[in-house]
Design a protein around this nucleic acid. Structure first.
Length: 279
DNA sequence: CACCATGTTCCTTG
DNA sequence: CCAAGGAACATGGT
C-alpha cells in the first residue's frame, strides 16, 4: 500500500491531469470497491460532476467536485487500501488486469487498479470524521500530540497507528518515526517524557516529509506513470536496497550502532526497532 | 504448501 | 469504558 507519502504523490500527480475534467461515466468492475454499493446509486452521486482538484487527507485521495445537480456528492474519496493505484490513461488504452473501477473523463480515463481489493471509492466524506491532525500541518504540535497520548497505557506504536491520534501514519512510518525519535515501540504512549513527545513529533514530520521529497525528486527523473508511481517506496527497476532504517530489516545492522534490528509483533503487525538505540 | 504483506473495521475477550 | 488480540476482507509474492 501506499502510505501517506505515496498517497501525497498520487494526489500531486493526478491534480493537473484531472482538474477541470468532467466524469462522463463510472465503469465498476468490482462492486465491493464502491460506496454506495450499487453502481446506480454510485453513479447518481457523481452524475455530470466536474473534478476541480485533488487533495490528500490521511491516506484518502479527495477529488473535489463542482456542483452539478441536486444530490451530487461534493467530493469523491479514494482509499488505496494495500495494493491500490489510481492513475490517468488515454481512453483507448486497455484497462489493466486488476482494474476495479474506471471513470471516463472524455479523452482520458481515471483508472483504479487494486489487486487485493481492500481499496474503496466513496461518495460520502463521513469517513474523514474523527481523524486526528495531519502530521505535516501546523495543527500537529507537540502539545496536541502530548494531549492525545495523555493517560494512555497503549504501546506508542499502537498509538501512532490510531488515526484519531494523528492521521495517516502507517506501519512502515510508525517504525521509522520511533527509530528516529529513539523511542522503544512498546513504551506506553502516556508515559513519554515531554522531550520524547517533542522528538517523536519532529521525527514523524521528518520521515514523512523526506519521503515525499524523495518521491518528488524521483518523479522529476522518471516521469510518473502507472509503472513508476511506487509503493513500498521502491519503483520498479530501482535498486533493491531499502530506503528504510529499520522497517523490514530484521537482523540487519542498525544504521547508528550496527546492533541487529529486531522484529516484534504488536496488534498483529510487525514492528522493527533497534534494541540498543531505542528505549 | 506455508507464510508473509504498506490498511481498516469489527468482534471478542479481559 | 478501555485495551489487546484476532479475524476478516482477497490476492500475490517468496
Amino acid at each position: 500500500m501506499p502510505e501517506l507519502p505515496e498517497v501525497e504523490q498520487f494526489a500531486r500527480h493526478l491534480a493537473p491531469r484531472v482538474a477541470g475534467q468532467q466524469i462522463r461515466f463510472a465503469e465498476i468492475r468490482c462492486l465491493r470497491t464502491i460506496r454506495p454499493l450499487t453502481p446506480e446509486s454510485f453513479r447518481d452521486a457523481l452524475r455530470g460532476s466536474a473534478i476541480t482538484g485533488v487533495r490528500r487527507r490521511a491516506k484518502y485521495l479527495l477529488f473535489d467536485l463542482a456542483p452539478s445537480c441536486s444530490g451530487h456528492a461534493q467530493c469523491l474519496l479514494g482509499h488505496l487500501g494495500m495494493t491500490g493505484r489510481i492513475f490517468v490513461q488515454p481512453l483507448q488504452e486497455p484497462l489493466p488486469r486488476h482494474t476495479v473501477a474506471a471513470l471516463d473523463l472524455g479523452a482520458t480515463r481515471l483508472v483504479f487498479e487494486d489487486a487485493r481489493k481492500f481499496g474503496r471509492l466513496l461518495t460520502d466524506a463521513s469517513a474523514l470524521n474523527g481523524l486526528g491532525p495531519e502530521p505535516l500541518s501546523p495543527d500537529f504540535s507537540t502539545e496536541v500530540l502530548t494531549a492525545a497520548l495523555r493517560g494512555s497505557r497503549r504501546a506508542i506504536k499502537a498509538c501512532l497507528l490510531d488515526s484519531g491520534v494523528v492521521a495517516g501514519i502507517g506501519n512502515i512510518y510508525a517504525s521509522e518515526s520511533l527509530f528516529r525519535a529513539r523511542i522503544h515501540p512498546q513504551r506506553a504512549g502516556g508515559h513519554l517524557t515531554p522531550d520524547e513527545c517533542r522528538r517523536l513529533r519532529t521525527a514523524i514530520r521528518g520521515v514523512l516529509s523526506e519521503a515525499i521529497r524523495r518521491a518528488e525528486a524521483q518523479s522529476l527523473e522518471t516521469p510518473a506513470n502507472r509503472e513508476t508511481l511506487f509503493y513500498h517506496g521502491n519503483a520498479p527497476g530501482s535498486p533493491a536496497t531499502s530506503r528504510f532504517c529499520v522497517y523490514d530489516r530484521a537482523n540487519a545492522p542498525c544504521p547508528n550502532c550496527r546492533t541487529p534490528i529486531r522484529r516484534l509483533v504488536q496488534a498483529a503487525r510487525s514492528t522493527y526497532f533497534c534494541p540498543r538505540c531505542q528505549w
